[in-house]
Amino acid sequence: MKILAMLISLSLILAIGFLYAFFRAMKSGQFDDLESPAMRVLDLKKPKTKKSK
C-alpha cells in the first residue's frame, strides 16, 4: 500500500509541472491570440526569420 504514497506524490509533481507549463505559456502570451497563428499558416511566403519576442 505504501506504493500509493509514492504514486500520489509523483502524480502531484506531474500536475504541478503542467500547471507550471501553463503559467509559462500564459506569461509568454501564447493565449493572447488564438486566431492569428492559424491564419498565418496560410501565408504563402517563405517563413520569415525568427522575430524578436
Binding site: D32, D33, L34, E35, S36, M39, K51, S52
Partner: peptide, 8 residues
Amino acid sequence: SCNVNFEQ
C-alpha cells in the same frame, strides 16, 4: 518587424 494579434 510587425506582428499581428488578430483577436485584439
